[in-house]
Write a protein that binds this DNA or RNA. Structure first.
Lengths: 322, 322
DNA sequence: TTTCATATGTCAACCGGATGACATATAATT
DNA sequence: AATTATATGTCATCCGGTTGACATATGAAA
């Protein structure tokens, strides 16, 4: 059986209250007593039961983290930073991979509430899921609008979209096409597309957008077939950009002289696996930091309604595909 | 204030015990009563407090998951599957990114014990960390030997190493060099290197191994400088393989005619970003599945000491770099 | 009519730890 | 000698839910 406070007390020859005092550093404790208690804890291999503690203090130091999947390099890296920063502040992460499925998302939210998490960070959100609006529970969205009352942190998607498009234009491209993932998500990432359209129009060019739905390759082939004159593509993430490069090579397009590609995200993994890809890099660490800052403030009820939307700057990485 | 069982009881006009009976489906419950209780729960937006529940039943349905970082595509994908399968079985994941640091690993282990996790899955392990040997707590290792008493699940690293090396030999290579990450980890992955050495010797070839330490690029440059005749490289993971490809291109080596590269892991992300890379693909989903199977069995004390080491088959993916 | 399965309530104990109230004792200050 | 800061103990209560024991009531089957 796991030792409890009373077992420690017995071994140390003190009262359970004294042990609790040592553990929580409350009231007066003598140096020798503190030592006796600590020795007893070591001897018994005692670990305080945080479940019991949480029940009493009504705080778990748990943060629920809901994203589509850790498998995606962007989310993987973001979650890494979130976990790291949270850990340094004494918070722990309950991980949820919603896979973009409404029912999973909903059941994760129930689970998190049952587990009495102190707050939720979510970057997954399907239109149908209204359950994020929980009056008693702090929530922060990353790159997703969850509700009017929930703060969002994202990078400057509009500026990123402008920079990417402008770069292609500066390099002499005229038949620039944009590809993005499913747009049914209420996401600030849609601003990338908006920026693309704006910049194109400002330059008297016609914006054309394709949308992938799971199978990138099919859409990309269709894009090339339907637009033989396309001279460049702005992809809304690096994975799509990579697929574009592949298809362009199959079609004997010469990159970057004859055909240019720019992606979006600039994760560590992409930088390692596909360093030649030009891309718009999101400040992932900073997004994680800001998200946690805001969440912790909400948890501590230092409400700060000035921060309903936080937008962090992106960085253009020009490499060999533009 | 969050509603509790007694609040639900009041609204439903029944006793707290009856509510608990409905929640746990115990004893006799009338259909109308069940409905009244469920309606009351919906009306109050009641969620059972799993912290209180866990305290009493002495089970949290929490699994601690300790890996170096979700940012790495292999771990990201593995953790995704672990979380997924665990969720389908009613278990939740407490995420820990140890970053290969002993002190972090140790403090995570303490944290997990305080949180009364039902079990731990760990793929991080520094030699100095003996704390995994916790008599009362089920632990399963993934691709890492944690202790004599802890089951390990891995893919067939030796066979993978053999296949990779053999492929290069079959393609006519003779000056094959192996690169792997830091080998101070007690990992079955060292078998990849062992297999490489064995196959080389069987073919009267001299094995040469380089080891990276954080900075891949420097080691790779050194490798090329010191071995001008090198005609192929077997890298112990895809990220290193990618760096090798890059350096080879800089040195005007023609892949695959003049120079060949094979990697290891074959994650989704690598397949998307670098599909041309030949690699040994690990069965990540199956590793996750088997790991959880074993862990859950241990948790339920269906001890199965026949499974101290589980080895799953790998798959050679031959693409364009060999 | 008796027995029994069904249905619900009351009550108390328990899970492990936190905390406030209060008692007691020693040593240091005033 | 009186006061006070320090140190520790005892005891009861609470956190929210679970569970076993026991009482009670109804309708159906034996």
């Amino acid at each position: 059986m796991k030792p409890k406070i009373s077992d420690v007390a017995k071994v140390a020859g003190v009262s359970p209250t004294t042990v609790s005092r040592v553990l929580n550093n409350r009231g007066y404790i003598g140096e020798e007593t503190r030592k006796k208690v600590n020795d007893a804890m070591k001897h018994l291999n005692y670990f305080p039961n945080d479940v019991a503690r949480s029940l009493f203090i009504k705080k778990t130091f748990l943060i629920g983290v809901v994203f589509p999947t850790t498998s995606n390099p962007f989310y993987g890296q973001l979650i890494f930073h979130i976990e790291n920063i949270a850990a340094s502040l004494g918070y722990k992460i309950l991980l949820c991979n919603s896979q973009g499925q409404e029912d999973k998302e909903r059941s994760y939210l129930r689970m998190l509430q049952r587990n009495q998490v102190d707050g939720i960070i979510a970057g997954a959100h399907n239109r149908g899921v209204k359950e994020y609006d929980i009056p008693t529970l702090p929530v922060v969205g990353v790159d997703r609008y969850l509700s009017k009352n929930i703060p969002v942190v994202s990078s400057d998607n509009y500026d990123g979209g402008r920079q990417a498009t402008q770069l292609l234009i500066n390099k002499g491209c005229r038949n620039i096409i944009h590809i993005n993932g499913p747009s049914y998500l209420e996401t600030p990432a849609n601003l990338r597309r908006k920026a693309y359209e704006d910049v194109m129009k400002e330059n008297q060019l016609t914006p054309i957008t394709y949308e992938t739905a799971g199978d990138n390759q099919a859409v990309i082939q269709q894009l090339f077939d339907e637009n033989p004159l396309v001279d460049s593509i702005f992809a809304s993430d690096d994975l799509i950009a990579s697929a574009v490069i592949r298809e362009a090579k199959l079609r004997k397009r010469n990159i970057p002289s004859d055909f240019k590609v720019i992606g979006y995200d600039g994760t560590e993994t992409t930088r390692l696996l596909l360093p030649e890809l030009s891309t718009i890099q999101q400040p992932i660490r900073e997004i994680a930091q800001k998200t946690i800052d805001i969440l912790i403030k909400e948890i501590n009820e230092e409400e700060n309604h000035s921060e309903m939307e936080t937008i962090l700057p992106v960085r253009l990485i020009e490499s060999e595909t533009t």
